[in-house]
Design a protein around this nucleic acid. Sequence first.
DNA 1: CTTGGAAAGTCAACAAGGCTGACATAAAAT
DNA 2: ATTTTATGTCAGCCTTGTTGACTTTCCAAG
Lengths: 169, 169
Amino acid sequence: MAEGGAGPGGGESLLFLTDEQLRKGIEAMFFAYRGFTADPDRILESKEYGRAHHRALHFIHRSPGTTVNNLLSILGVTKQSLNRVLRTLIEDGLVESRVGRKDKRERHLFLTTTGDALERELSEAQRGRMRAAYRAAGPQAVAGFRQVLEAMMEPEMRRQYQTLRDAGL
Amino acid sequence: MAEGGAGPGGGESLLFLTDEQLRKGIEAMFFAYRGFTADPDRILESKEYGRAHHRALHFIHRSPGTTVNNLLSILGVTKQSLNRVLRTLIEDGLVESRVGRKDKRERHLFLTTTGDALERELSEAQRGRMRAAYRAAGPQAVAGFRQVLEAMMEPEMRRQYQTLRDAGL
DNA sequence: CTTGGAAAGTCAACAAGGCTGACATAAAAT
DNA sequence: ATTTTATGTCAGCCTTGTTGACTTTCCAAG
């Protein structure tokens, strides 16, 4: 690995914080993110959808009944941008939009059977790669991976993430 | 962290490979990548450049004198797409393109003083967040982080990454 | 009951950054 | 002499993001 070696005295070295190590981490994020999205992207390009549709399907699957506003804050895009994606998913019968009972202005989003099938196909492809990477690296590495990623998030997104992480699901 | 706990007998548990754990990892990648690009993006939006320009500047900085073809294979885009970005960077005097001595068909790319200044501004912002995340997570977590990311890359990209990782720089 | 404002949706216009296809040039390789 | 490689460029298209303006619906406070 070329790490280790420490300095003169050894012990609690801060060599992992050098600009050089940070640059390697930056490139690792860049290349890994490409791998991360590669499999779903391949599936999507055959169908008439893109990565934006995948993201919507993922988060509706994760939180069935979520409102459009919730989705907006998680995805961090404008409502116009999300609406374009959502409209095609609803038209194509992958997502169902139900008017809220308590607040009828809100729309609650659910996956249909068809939508669930596509979501599963996409997420199984993505999990496949993830599983291989996890298995290759081992549980301790995975724990470190999650720690660093969590520390890298914007505080607001970290809250979104942790809410789900800490809940039953 | 809610992990641990192991199964009945304990020891070498595979609980870190459940679909649930994998889904958390997937979302961690999604949210963390947003944080990862947030700071450079903020700087770029004030200037007239985008993330594509940042990527070009980064890899030219990393490998001064690299050819257009090298850059294409690293970035994984078409030459038309890269050329658009490269043309503006050259016109604006951030990148210099020199005809190859040995093979005059090739163009070797270098950052000018101005280009280097922007690259440094962008990468310092990005390293700042990375450094904070590394420091918060600690050296062991960082090692795991790198291991998982590396295992997640497409094999071809892993080679690109390791070439640089293993070299002096 | 009226009105203010929030939630949602829609239309139009635009930009960045991907893509394909076609074509041009120069130089290396065969 | 011919073919292949490296690069650049023009034109056109797509996805996914943006802003701004406007409407409809409907809750809630005055």
